[in-house]
Structure formats: C-alpha cells, structure tokens
Design a protein around this nucleic acid. Structure first.
Length: 105
DNA sequence: CGCTTGACACCGT
DNA sequence: AACGGTGCCAAGC
C-alpha cells in the first residue's frame, strides 16, 4: 500500500453493506481528510473492481455521481447495479437517501 | 517545484 | 428548483 489515501478509500468502500450506500464526503471524513474529490478519483481507478463496490458511493446531495467517468452510459449502468442491490433510484437520485445511507464509524 | 485536473461539497443568486 | 461560483486536497504532468 503505497497510497494510504486511495487504499483507505477502497477499505471503507468495501465496508458498505449490500443494499446500502455512502457518500464521497462521508468516506473522506471517515478517513480524516476533506479530499472528497480524491475519493472519486480512487474509485474511478478502482483496480479492485469486484472486491470494491464503488457503485455504492454517491454524492451527498443524493445524486448518483459518476461511474468510470461521467458518461451517461456508465451512470445508467451504475443505477442498474444499485437497483439490483435493492436501492431504488428515481430521476438519477437515490430514493430514501438518508435511509439508505450507510454511516461510517 | 508549480500549475492543472477532478466519479465532490457548500453557499449564494 | 436549477445554475453557477468558490473552496478543498491529493494526483498527474
């Protein structure tokens, strides 16, 4: 683990249980930093594709955010996965966001 | 070593 | 509610 920051992102991400979600800011905060954007960068790289459920991370506003870039195609894919996980998405927004939000210790 | 970039967040208009 | 500008912090070049 050369990059502590990025590694931590993956760590916290993998902690998110199925059917729940978390936000970039929440993860950053849990890490003790405010580099929200770096969290996103890390997930975009995501070398641990299946191991780290990067699709369970969304924006604090309840928006989906991005997925493998900001392309609409990928966003759709992300929503699809979330729905399969049991998270409803409406108009690119998480349904019952506060409820689905997984708060990190 | 300094400037640009970015899967964000927050606040004002 | 939608849009835009500003702040934040690490990674890339």
């Amino acid at each position: 683990m050369e990059n502590k920051f990025i590694n931590d992102v993956y760590f916290y991400c993998s902690k998110i249980p199925r059917g729940k979600i978390s936000t970039y800011g929440e993860i950053a905060r849990a890490m003790g930093t405010k580099a929200y954007r770096q969290v996103g960068q890390a997930l975009k790289r995501n070398p641990y594709a299946p191991k780290v459920p990067c699709h369970r991370v969304v924006k604090s506003s309840g928006d989906i955010g991005g997925f493998s870039g900001s392309d609409l195609k990928n966003i759709k894919k992300k929503i699809s996965i979330l729905k399969e996980e049991g998270v409803d998405v409406k108009n690119g927004k998480i349904v019952d966001f506060e409820k689905r939000l997984f708060r990190i210790s």
